[in-house]
Amino acid sequence: MDFLDVPTVLKVSALFNLMAALAWLTLAQLFRIAPRAGRLMAAAHLARIVSQGCGDCLAGWPAPARQAVPEFALLGCVLLLLLALRRMLRSRQRPRDIAWIAGLGAAGIAAGLASGSGLAPQLASTVAVTVLGLMAVREVWRGIGDRLSAVVRIGTTLPFALLALLAFVHGAELLLVPGWEAHVLEGRLPTAARAVLWFVVTAAITLSLIALMIWRLIMRIQHLTHRDPLTGALNRRAFERALADGQAQLQRGRGFALVMIDIDHFKQINDRHGHPAGDAALQHCVRVWQAGLREIDCLGRLGGEEFCALLPLALPGDLATATVVAERLRASLAAQPLHWQGSELPLTASFGVALPVVGDAQGEVGLARADAELYRAKTEGRNRVCVALHLGGLGASS
């Protein structure tokens, strides 16, 4: 690539990183879109400008400083990138592993500079960047999971894999290609091919992160569309859609159970303690119940203090398992009172369990049966589970 002017490529890369930093800051500060991740990404782009060098701008600096600035900047750039990625994907892992890798890399750079070696600082930063790049690949792959197609996951992960690969190849060059120490100590510019390749990887990572941000926004919109704004449970429309899907699966031999839930004496909470206490009680109940449900289970708020859980079953007609789950939800709520303004408010709920009926496209029959059992639980004293044992039967109390 002799026809390329390397300083021009570096200037174009610096301009791209500067514009990207401004764009991320605008999204974070003005539009409040992923603000923490946006600020981290802006800092990462600014660190990338420093890491790629600036020709003669460091000419008057001591040799250790000329080496230290780009190496520490590159390590900081990838560190900030990984932290932003975790923010964007809402990773629950604490950044201790990232801190250890970055800390060891920084210590290696400092030790190499102190020894006067030209290769040791670059080798330390290269190893750290390789490991952090592989961690970024893992974060993207796990963060997306199976919510997007394999092609999209691979395309989104590929730029981070290329980052790790480039760092690894550079580390191999440092160890195997003679003359690199003099190249480093003299502060020579990278080759045109290397400069272009790093620019392409930087741009690809930026585009991948933009795609992740758009995906996060779409997921957020879907969440707001499908969720009850107060409790976070599915709203009635979303639950009815899940119920219709369950009825379609029932035709294929995949069963489920319905558990109708109603909070006992909820009106008294509102009357005695006010509506804020009632809202807190609803949120408390949903937190307790969600903790006792699997990820594949659906909990929906049908209205007021009435909820319904849809429990997929490994065996169609396994009413015993559904009853055990309902009993667990009942007991867990009874054991965890609501702490409200310095006092404990005991909460209980009544449960009605029923199986769906094949051919009932909207699940209305199954809901009616579960609701009838809920009504029976209320009339028999509340804070209990009643189960419809068979179609048309009177059911039994648990």
Rank of each mutant, 00 (worst) to 15 (best):
L4D: 03
V12K: 06
N17L: 10
A23R: 00
L27Y: 05
L30V: 04
L30N: 07
M41Y: 05
A47S: 14
Q52K: 04
C57S: 08
G60M: 02
P62N: 02
P64E: 05
P64M: 03
A65W: 12
L82G: 01
W100M: 12
G103Y: 12
A107H: 04
S117Y: 08
L123Y: 02
A128G: 10
V129P: 00
I144C: 11
G145E: 06
S149N: 10
L163R: 10
L166A: 15
G171Q: 02
G171L: 00
L174G: 14
A182W: 01
A192R: 06
F199T: 14
V201Y: 04
T202C: 11
A204G: 11
A211W: 08
M213D: 10
M213A: 15
I218R: 12
M219D: 15
H223A: 11
L224H: 11
L234H: 15
R237E: 09
A242Y: 04
L243F: 07
G246S: 13
L250H: 05
F266W: 07
K267G: 05
Q268E: 06
A291L: 09
G300Y: 14
A309E: 02
G317W: 07
S332F: 01
L355H: 12
G359M: 11
G359S: 03
A361S: 14
R376W: 09
R376V: 06
R382L: 07
N383W: 09
G392Y: 08
G393Y: 07
